[in-house]
Simulated scan of single mutants.
Amino acid sequence: MMHVRTSTTLTYAGARAALDAAFAKATDLGLALNIAVCDGAGTLLAFARMDGAFAHSGSIAIDKAATVCGFEGIATDDLYDGLAGEDAVVRGIANRPGIAAFGGGVPIRVGDDLIGAVGVSGGSAQQDKEVASAGAAAVTTKEQR
């Protein structure tokens, strides 16, 4: 039985690469959003509130990123879809502090390792996911080179 394991860790530089790529994608789409990047444990590493972004959606972006990590890398829109029809579960999860089970949170993976997540809030669920995915891709694409 193994008592320890080696894991890959997202650095601040990696978090900034994700943040910058997500910021650029949001700018290209003409959106003002909040963008959060967490490490694999769901701890915030980088955050930006773009000019004109809704102030209250900042904490939602952070919650989306942390939710992905807390549910072992399940994107928040997939979590939402997976809970559909489970009314008691949805009410329980939706009422937990820090849980955001709707689109806009995506994992950052290197191979099979969950190393972090990007959470975005302030647009539609689809827009938030598109921007978050651009951020995550900036880390995984660079890592694979």
Results as ranks from 00 to 15, higher is better:
A66W: 08
A66R: 13
T67H: 00
T67N: 00
V68K: 06
V68W: 06
C69Y: 06
G70A: 01
G70R: 01
F71D: 02
F71I: 10
F71E: 04
F71K: 09
F71T: 15
G73T: 08
G73M: 05
I74K: 12
I74T: 15
A75G: 13
A75N: 14
T76W: 00
D78W: 01
L79N: 07
L79Q: 11
L79A: 11
D81E: 11
G82A: 04
G82H: 03
L83T: 05
L83D: 00
L83V: 02
L83K: 01
A84V: 08
G85D: 07
G85N: 06
G85C: 03
E86G: 01
E86N: 14
E86R: 14
D87F: 04
D87R: 15
D87S: 14
A88Y: 02
V89A: 12
V89N: 00
V89Y: 01
V89T: 13
V89H: 02
V90H: 07
R91Q: 15
R91H: 13
R91P: 03
G92F: 13
G92T: 12
G92R: 11
I93F: 11
I93T: 05
A94I: 02
N95C: 09
N95S: 15
R96N: 13
R96H: 13
R96L: 15
P97F: 12
P97R: 14
P97Y: 10
P97T: 15
P97M: 13
G98P: 14
G98R: 11
G98V: 10
I99M: 14
A101K: 04
A101P: 07
F102P: 00
G103W: 02
G103A: 15
G103H: 05
G104P: 11
G105H: 10
G105M: 05
V106R: 06
V106G: 03
V106C: 04
V106L: 04
V106K: 04
P107R: 11
P107F: 02
I108Q: 03
R109V: 13
V110L: 15
V110G: 03
V110N: 03
G111F: 12
G111R: 12
D112C: 09
D112A: 15
D113H: 08
D113L: 00
D113M: 09
L114F: 01
L114N: 07
I115Q: 05
I115R: 07
G116N: 04
G116L: 07
G116T: 06
G116A: 04
G116E: 08
G116D: 05
A117D: 13
A117C: 13
A117L: 14
V118N: 09
V118S: 10
V118H: 06
G119W: 01
G119N: 04
G119D: 04
G119Y: 01
V120K: 14
V120P: 05
V120M: 11
V120N: 07
S121A: 15
S121W: 05
S121F: 08
S121E: 10
S121Y: 05
G122C: 14
G122V: 14
G123V: 07
G123Y: 09
G123I: 07
G123H: 07
S124Y: 03
S124I: 04
S124R: 08
S124G: 14
A125D: 15
A125M: 10
Q126S: 09
Q127K: 07
Q127T: 08
